[in-house]
Amino acid sequence: MLGRTASAIFWMYRYLERAENTARLLEAGHRMTMTRSEDMAVQEWRSVLATLGLQQAYEAKYSDFGGAQVCDFVLRAKDNSENVLSMIERARTNARAARSSITGEVWEAINEGWMTLSNLLKKPVSSGTLNQSLGAVRRVSTMVRGTTHGSMLRNEAYSFSRLGTFIERADKTARILDVKYYLLLPSLSYVGTPLDTGQWDTVLRSLSAERAYRWLNAGRMDARSIADFLILDDRFPRSLVFCYSELRDTMADLAKFHGSEAEAHEHMRQFDMRLRDTSVENIFDRGLHEFLLDFIANNQLLASAIGSDYRFNS
């Protein structure tokens, strides 16, 4: 497979995963602010923007934190180069570049999804259209993922789609967890208060993890239990361990296709073993923030190694 085709597929699925995670984070923030005081609602939206790395850009333009205004900025603002509509458009552009390596069903799913979302986001987002817009973002990703699983050969193209998906998913899970733990909680005095519990609930909802976590933990809402679930529980499809299990299997498939391993495979083994050999006690003894920063850096190193080995810039 040509490097530019591999790159297009890899980034197509990274952008789709990124857009979906962003939509879920906005949806969780919106849901939480509906039951919060005005001051706490502002804090929730600040936390969403901080998680997305957009707080500085937003505050340079706005001084207030209305929910519809925040969501409009994240979803469609032209002066926000990382808006969700741009992510979907980039995914579509990459899909077009890889048309010969994806199925017609996959192309139709992303093309139709982009057209639907573009139409919805022609006008500023309002409270009345927010849920519809966020649902449309999630459906684009869901439809493309479904048609990918249901129609594509399990070949190199499929492998690069999986790599893009799980590199991005692992990155976003780690960043959401890190921002909550390190940046969002105003003071240690808030630990165990309704503000603390509500923010952890937002983290779980933004990762579609709230129901699964409560099933397994009988309502416990503390940092250690949630970190254990989001990092080390291989039953949850957005946990770091689950993402790296998928990456490990996909990298093994690529080695079979090419008849040899490359530098990225060695990085994969080292990171995966380090992750699987740790425990939540070791993570907290070292420091959750430090662990997550290290994970994010290693995850990016793996993405770069994949790009280098397979002849594209990641």
Rank of each mutant, 00 (worst) to 15 (best):
188 L>P: 13
80 N>M: 04
34 M>D: 02
127 S>I: 03
273 M>D: 15
258 H>S: 09
59 E>T: 08
15 Y>E: 00
298 N>K: 11
172 K>E: 11
270 Q>G: 14
172 K>T: 10
78 K>Y: 10
276 R>P: 09
26 L>I: 10
97 A>T: 01
273 M>Q: 13
75 L>I: 02
142 T>F: 04
222 D>C: 01
294 D>M: 15
292 L>A: 02
131 N>V: 07
224 R>A: 13
173 T>E: 05
66 G>C: 04
189 S>E: 06
167 I>V: 07
143 M>R: 08
273 M>L: 15
182 Y>V: 13
4 R>C: 13
163 L>H: 01
2 L>I: 13
291 F>D: 02
18 R>E: 07
167 I>Y: 12
169 R>D: 05
175 R>S: 02
149 H>W: 03
121 L>G: 00
207 L>W: 01
16 L>K: 12
226 I>V: 15
156 E>H: 08
314 S>H: 07
256 K>L: 08
15 Y>H: 15
154 R>D: 11
17 E>H: 10
16 L>D: 09
294 D>I: 14
83 N>M: 04
313 N>A: 12
153 L>V: 12
170 A>Y: 00
146 G>Q: 01
136 A>K: 00
156 E>K: 13
98 A>H: 10
15 Y>C: 01
197 T>M: 15
90 R>N: 13
178 D>T: 06
204 L>S: 05
46 R>F: 02
262 A>F: 12
230 L>P: 07
196 D>P: 01
59 E>K: 09
39 D>A: 14
169 R>T: 07
279 S>L: 11
116 T>S: 05
264 A>E: 07
269 R>K: 14
13 Y>I: 04
280 V>K: 02
61 K>D: 06
243 C>V: 09
148 T>S: 05
110 I>C: 11
96 R>Y: 07
95 A>C: 14
4 R>D: 04
43 Q>S: 11
288 L>S: 01
204 L>Y: 04
142 T>G: 07
313 N>T: 15
42 V>F: 05
312 F>Y: 07
171 D>N: 09
247 L>P: 00
144 V>D: 04
20 E>H: 09
93 T>Y: 11
44 E>T: 15
214 R>S: 11
222 D>A: 05
272 D>S: 09
117 L>R: 05
232 L>P: 06
245 S>C: 08
49 L>N: 01
225 S>M: 07
